[in-house]
Simulated assay, not measured.
Amino acid sequence: MTPPKELSSKEQLLSLVEANPFIGQQELADQLGLSRSAVAGHLGQLTREGRILGRAYVLPQRQPIVCIGGTNLDRKLRAVGPLRMGSSNPAQQHESAGGVARNIAENLARLGLPVHLLTAVGRDAAGQTLLTQLQGLGVDCAGCLQAADAATGSYTAVLDPDGELVLALAHMELTDRLDPAFLRQTAPQRAPARWLVADLNLPRETLDELRAEARLRDQRLLLVAVSEPKMARLGTDLRGVELLVLNRGELQALSGQVLPDDAALRAAWRSLHDAGLQRLVMSDGAAGLRFSEGDDLVLLPPPRLNPASIREVTGAGDALTAGIAAALHRDPDDLRGACALGLQLAALTLQSDATVSEALSPALLV
């Protein structure tokens, strides 16, 4: 049997830089047993080869939040009268950009935060428009996958006259291409991040690798659920997950049981914590949300809204997650305050026809 080939000094150096993009040349030299000039030579060669993009000296407040997951075109059809199944129903149509990771990235950008999106779109008019819109808001889209052989994903929501979701159809196969190979290609884009926000549209193998990566690096991983069927992608080992955001139905799907009362919810949270999850936020409809505090799930009610001001619900959950991520980016220990900001952003989105409210601004973070 041929013995395994030892890594060259340059490859060993690259591994150290991938694990810690802020590492200094002298520290590299000490760990590799090389001179500092030799380290500088290897770094220069790796930069010329395009395998590293330069030093990652980023001020803490400017470390980006990296969002990875789905981007698609949202089509919302709102019935103008009572819905009749099996029949044609008059409706109003609204079309906008969508996708959980994309929506969260736009919310964060409108709040004035540095954000980088890693997603997959088709090399079609819809895909190019979606990326151009984000770049215009200041979202860094370098590293996004643009497929020439597939159409950009779509999400079609059927709403009742009050704006409540009746049925949604998602065409999101492109997101399956955000696989571990894609993660390896985009390692330089993720390396500077303080927080990584990933949605469960991602393949299970990708989520497994993100959790393993988070355990090895000083990086916080926030996972956000997208639907009950896709909870199976999460797996059972939750070590490396700093925060999971979901709703009651998704928590029931994850736990495999109905959760009718507070005692059942607490038991489900303790089970997830035992599996390695650090913190949990569960949105609970009109009741607000529950966030983990010790062994308990604390209820936080939403802001009061005039029912007549509510337009529809699409995007409110993504705004909630974005608000939580934005606040934790500033103060990672204040989950209660983060949830309060998330509820505020969700309330603004409920009062907008758009998936992401244009009322968002950096002033909300003051």
Rank of each mutant, 00 (worst) to 15 (best):
A263G: 08
D274Q: 14
L335D: 04
G44L: 09
Q63I: 05
G86W: 14
D262Q: 15
A253K: 10
R102M: 07
E49P: 00
P60Y: 08
N20V: 02
M1S: 15
R217Y: 04
V58E: 04
D318C: 03
A170C: 11
Q31P: 09
F22D: 15
R190Y: 06
T2L: 14
T175A: 10
F291P: 00
V39F: 11
R239W: 02
S352Y: 07
P302R: 09
L7I: 02
A264Y: 08
L7Y: 10
V58Y: 01
P332K: 01
F22M: 15
R177H: 12
L244V: 05
G136S: 01
A268S: 06
G235I: 05
R330E: 07
S37A: 11
L254S: 07
P303F: 09
P188S: 06
L341G: 05
M1D: 09
G70D: 13
H273M: 11
S96C: 08
L83T: 12
T355A: 14
Q63H: 11
L73R: 14
L108Y: 01
L53R: 14
V197E: 07
T236Q: 14
D334I: 02
G50W: 12
A359I: 08
R190D: 04
L28A: 03
S361Q: 10
T152C: 09
L130A: 11
L16G: 08
N103L: 05
R55D: 05
A101I: 04
G288P: 03
G337Y: 03
D74T: 01
V66D: 09
N103Y: 00
I65D: 06
P60N: 05
D176F: 03
G112K: 04
E18V: 14
A151C: 13
Q12G: 09
Q351V: 02
D30V: 08
G86L: 08
L134G: 10
L131Q: 01
G337D: 04
D218N: 12
V366W: 00
D331L: 10
L246G: 11
W195L: 15
P332Y: 10
A347C: 00
Q45E: 14
A187Y: 04
P303L: 12
Y57K: 15
L117R: 04
L216W: 00
K230I: 12
D331W: 08
A212W: 06
H116A: 10
V139K: 07
V313P: 09
A79W: 13
P301R: 02
S35P: 00
M231G: 06
A214D: 05
L328Q: 07
S88D: 00
R270M: 10
R75Y: 15
E293T: 01
C144L: 06
R336Y: 15
R220V: 09
L251V: 04
E95G: 07
A193H: 01
L46A: 02
L320E: 11
F22N: 15
